[in-house]
Simulated scan of single mutants.
Amino acid sequence: MAGERHRIITIANQKGGVGKTTTAINLATALAAIGERVLIVDLDPQGNASTGLGIDRRDRKLSSYDLMVGDRGIPEVTLETAVPNLFIVPSTMDLLGIEMEISQQSDRVFKLRKALSSPEAMAFSYILLDCPPSFNLLTMNAMAAAHSVLVPLQCEFFALEGLSQLLETVSQVRRTVNPRLDIQGIVLTMFDARNNLAQQVVNDVRTHLGDKVYHTLIPRNVRVSEAPSYGKPAILYDLKCAGSQAYLQLASEVIQRERQRLAA
């Protein structure tokens, strides 16, 4: 589905360990499960999204590095996953050197946008960009290419502090390189209902950001944590666990927001 149904969403947070890649994998799987054609672009040199979808390192002949600097197109760098309708541009350690290679080029922040403007990229209804846990040239490329940003936020004490920095970054990108960029939503992750602090964080974030925050809370869940070691999204590993069910709900909310955007 091209045109208006084609959406590029950056999944970003400069903090590590907030459930960013887990969210990318499971949101993509949930969207694919309801018939959307979905592509993940793994922009983290660690390659956790690729590993979590069962892509062996030996099979990553080409990667997001080649997409951005190697003049390779989407068909050449894209691999099928075990999930029907879900594809991935994998990551390799080559990405570690990309900043040095392109930092002097005038179009350095638009490399990914150019790569994702092809007809083959437009054929995906959703493209999810999984960013590294830092604000660097890879994240900048992702934000320059995207329509919106989805922010996973761990239910912990310093959550709001880190979030304000990220929101300022989004504003800066909007002012300088991508006026269309907006916040698709903020998803609260690793929620533990037994923890009073977690509930306080939820209340604080909702008070400050209102309906930018998804209703869905992603719980701390052992099955979700185990799934990547089997090279599977949690939704394939254990569909009935609380974490999988939460990601299905999140996908429903993402689609609902997109419908509201189209209707506006």
Rank of each mutant, 00 (worst) to 15 (best):
M143I: 03
M143S: 03
M143E: 05
A144E: 07
A144D: 08
A145H: 05
A145M: 08
A145S: 08
A146Y: 10
A146Q: 12
H147C: 07
S148K: 06
L153T: 01
Q154W: 00
C155A: 11
E156F: 00
F157D: 14
F157N: 12
F158N: 11
F158Y: 13
F158D: 08
F158E: 11
L160Y: 00
L160A: 03
L160T: 04
E161N: 04
E161K: 03
G162R: 01
L163V: 01
S164T: 03
Q165E: 07
L166V: 03
L166G: 01
T169G: 08
V170I: 12
V170D: 03
S171K: 09
S171Y: 05
S171E: 13
Q172S: 14
Q172M: 14
V173Q: 15
V173D: 13
R175M: 14
V177M: 15
V177F: 11
P179T: 05
P179M: 10
R180P: 09
L181W: 08
L181S: 07
D182W: 13
Q184W: 02
Q184M: 12
Q184D: 13
G185T: 04
G185P: 01
I186Y: 00
V187I: 10
V187A: 03
V187T: 05
V187C: 02
V187D: 02
L188G: 02
T189C: 14
T189M: 13
M190Q: 14
F191G: 04
D192M: 12
A193Y: 08
R194Q: 13
R194K: 11
N196Y: 03
L197N: 03
L197Q: 05
A198Q: 02
A198W: 00
Q199L: 06
V201H: 02
V201W: 02
V202W: 00
N203E: 15
N203T: 06
N203M: 05
D204T: 02
D204I: 01
D204V: 02
D204A: 02
D204G: 00
V205L: 01
V205K: 01
V205F: 01
V205D: 00
T207N: 12
L209N: 00
L209M: 01
G210F: 01
G210Q: 04
D211V: 03
D211K: 06
K212Q: 09
Y214I: 11
H215L: 15
T216R: 02
T216P: 04
L217H: 04
I218V: 09
R220F: 08
N221V: 06
N221Q: 10
N221A: 09
R223D: 15
R223C: 15
V224Q: 11
V224E: 11
V224H: 10
S225F: 10
A227D: 12
A227C: 09
P228H: 12
P228E: 13
P228I: 14
P228Y: 11
P228M: 09
S229T: 14
S229P: 10
S229I: 12
Y230C: 11
P233R: 04
A234L: 06
A234D: 07
A234Q: 05
L236R: 02
Y237A: 14
Y237M: 14
D238Q: 13
L239G: 10
L239C: 06
L239R: 10
K240Y: 09
K240Q: 12
K240F: 08
K240P: 03
C241R: 06
G243N: 11
G243I: 04
G243K: 09
S244W: 05
S244M: 08
Q245L: 13
Q245I: 13
A246H: 05
A246T: 06
Y247W: 10
Y247T: 06
Y247D: 10
Y247M: 14
L248C: 15
L248R: 14
